[in-house]
Structure formats: C-alpha cells, structure tokens
C-alpha cells in the first residue's frame, strides 16, 4: 500500500537552523499491516506521519500511496486522499472545540459532498462503533481527553479509510484508556484496516505486530512477528 523510498525532510533549508528531521527513510507497508513507530521526542515521528498524510512534502525521495506518486500530486489529489482513503488522528486531536462531537465526525463527509441527513446517520453509527454514541451532541470542549481521542478516531473512520495514521494516540490517556484504545485499533485492524501509530509509549508499541524505531530522523525496523 505504501512505499517510501529514501525520503528525507529538512526544515529551515539553507538557514543556520536547518534541521534534518528525517533521513533517507525507507518504508514498505502492505494492506492490513499494523505498525508502530517509536522514538524519543523530536526524533521525527510526526514529520514521518505528516509526509504519509500528504500534509508535508519531503525534501527528497519518493512516496507512493497505492499507485499515486504523492510527492508529485496536486493539493486536490492529496486532499482527496485525506478525505477518503487516509484517516488521521493528530497529536492534539485536531478537532473543532466549539462544534459538537457529531459535527466534527461528519466534517470529512460534508467536505466530500455527502447529503446532510445521510452524513449524520453515518456519523452517529461511527460514534457508536467507538463507544461514545451518547456524546454525539456534546461540544468537544466539554469532553475529557479520552473522549476527545475517540471523537478523533471516529472522524478518522467515518469515510471507511483504508489507512489510519495516529500521532501519539495514547499520549493524553491513562493506562486503562490506553489499553482500551489499543483494543479498538486491534479490532479495526482485524477487520482489514491498515494502521500506523506513532508513539513513545512502549507498552502500546509492544501490541503491534510490526514495530519501527526512529532516532534522530533515522527510521529502522525493530520487530516483525
């Protein structure tokens, strides 16, 4: 599904403060993989994820998603990918605090052009799937960290994406919530979804069949079971 070849990302190119956040990363992801990427703070985990999501362009290297050359794709194509094929859960959830959980979940559907009524139905069923159906009409600002995390997951799932990218999904959660979120990911993976999570939580990383490490921008496979 994903082929990253010699992908590097430098920030502040040509300046004194130039950072090499990712160095010649190579990554092959097959359909149905469940991968974790661990590494210390500032090692380049988010950078990798943003490149995979088409939010950031690599400085060099190539990135194929299915047969799309994402490095050369237009904004429209990349937005289309994020809207339909790649669900993203960002480090701070990336939700709109003044909107209800349901509105947040339906956003990709609205942007994608689905009818309002249909979108609301679909949004509700996904909220049910992640176990927070009763919070649909609550404003995100009024929700706890664990609940927000589930709203973010629901939004990533709402379009039946084939790939789920999650940046520190357990970062704001206690161990009980962490474990139940990992249960949810495992269930999703079992139903065929490809998942890549980026985390510095070792316990969470140990639950994925494939794990990578990233240190100072260097990506390396650690384990494959």
């Amino acid at each position: 599904m994903i082929t990253l070849k010699d992908v590097s990302k430098n920030y502040n190119v040509g300046k004194q403060t130039e950072v090499r956040a990712l160095r010649d990363a190579n990554l092959e992801v097959a359909d149905g993989d469940f991968i974790s990427v661990t590494g210390p703070s500032g090692s380049g985990k988010s950078t990798l994820l943003h490149i995979l999501a088409g939010l950031d362009a690599p400085t060099s290297g190539t990135y194929f998603f299915k047969d799309i050359d994402v490095t050369k794709a237009s904004d429209k194509v990349k937005c289309g990918l994020r809207n339909r094929q790649i669900g993203i859960i960002l480090q701070d959830f990336g939700l709109l605090g003044d909107d209800t959980a349901l509105e947040n979940v339906c956003l990709p559907l609205t942007i994608g052009g689905m009818r309002r009524k249909q979108a609301l139905e679909r949004g509700k069923s996904v909220l049910e799937q992640v176990g927070i159906a009763e919070l649909a009409e609550k404003r995100v600002n009024q929700l706890s960290g664990g609940q927000r995390q589930r709203v973010a997951v629901a939004r990533a799932l709402v379009q039946n994406a084939s790939l789920l990218l999650a940046d520190e999904p357990t970062g704001a959660l206690d161990s009980r919530n962490t474990s139940s979120l990992m249960d949810l990911f495992e269930a999703l993976n079992a139903s065929g979804m490809t998942i890549i999570i980026v985390t510095h939580n070792i316990a969470a990383a140990q639950r994925t069949p494939i794990s990578y490490s990233i240190i100072d921008g260097v990506l390396r496979q650690e384990r494959r079971t």
Partner: peptide, 11 residues
C-alpha cells in the same frame, strides 16, 4: 488546519 486535514483543498 482542521478542514485541511479532513480533506478540504486550500482553493
């Protein structure tokens, strides 16, 4: 930024 993540183009 949220719209962008959810797939709305800048245009």
């Amino acid at each position: 930024a949220v719209f962008y993540i959810a797939g709305m183009t800048k245009k």
